[in-house]
């Protein structure tokens, strides 16, 4: 069990939770979160928004009964954090674009911060449907920040300007970014974070399998980050 340090509402539907938890989490990894007993049955996968050695934060959207329970928690309440899980984004060099749609922006705060610190030129593209959140935080994590409210954030990205492109968000967004990358001959530079429904979270049950060019992969264990080409190039 981990102690919640803070849990704030950021806008209409985003919340930010920080909890005490020793970790070595990498950008793009996730945790299975649980703040209840046996019901609901499944724990909820949520990406690492930020992490230092002793705390971890999650940016989440309230969409159903699990996330509604998370939103009802306060500082000093307890939560079970299983993780960090999954592979995370690769350590790249040169110029990277990080493209987040909706709550898919979550992994790019830590990813931007870490890669920027290692000398990578980081551009972050955030697509919101409502009021933008955490803009000054993302500004600090990026060399360049593009924020768009409504419309398609992928329209703002020019894949050929970058050595690598990371994407997280609705599948339609990632697919259209893949197409754009492909047109520019940059498909090989695209990494996408998949959001399949999960049960065990550790690779045992195969309910989150994702069809890829190299056969079925477990999103929870082999992913959630895959080459865009492997997933959308089929």
């Amino acid at each position: 069990m981990s102690k919640i340090l803070s849990n704030h509402r950021m806008n209409e539907d985003f919340y930010l939770m920080r909890a005490e938890h020793q970790n070595d989490a990498r950008p793009g990894q996730f945790y299975m979160l649980r703040a209840w007993g046996r019901e609901p049955v499944l724990s909820r996968p949520i990406s690492v928004f930020d992490a230092d050695g002793d705390t971890v934060s999650f940016l989440y959207k309230v969409v159903g009964r699990g996330s509604a329970i998370f939103a009802s928690l306060s500082a000093d309440d307890e939560i079970t954090l299983q993780g960090p899980l999954g592979n995370g984004f690769p350590n790249v060099t040169g110029k990277v674009a990080m493209v987040g749609g909706g709550v898919g922006i979550a992994p790019f705060y830590l990813a931007g911060k870490r890669l920027k610190a290692s000398g990578v030129q980081v551009s972050i593209y955030l697509g919101f449907s409502g009021e933008p959140v955490l803009v000054s935080e993302y500004e600090r994590a990026a060399g360049e920040l593009v924020v768009k409210v409504g419309g398609f954030i992928t329209d703002s990205v020019e894949p050929s300007d970058y050595d690598s492109i990371f994407a997280c968000g609705p599948e339609v967004m990632m697919r259209s970014l893949y197409k754009k990358c492909k047109e520019r001959g940059a498909a090989d530079n695209l990494f996408v974070s998949m959001e399949n429904r999960m049960a065990c979270g550790v690779g045992a049950c195969l309910v989150c399998s994702c069809k890829t060019a190299d056969g079925n992969k477990k999103v929870c264990k082999d992913g959630p980050v895959f080459k865009g080409e492997a997933v959308f190039g089929l």
């Binding site: 046996r38 049955v41 429904r197 049960a199 049950c205 195969l206 309910v207 989150c208 399998s209 079925n216």
Partner: peptide, 22 residues
């Protein structure tokens, strides 16, 4: 390879799965 598409759905006090023996 098992079934394509969605394989898990949570219900009240349960889950439904359609892994298809991958």
């Amino acid at each position: 390879a098992g079934n394509e598409g969605l394989r898990i759905w949570e219900t009240n006090s349960g889950i439904m799965n359609s892994v298809g023996l991958e």
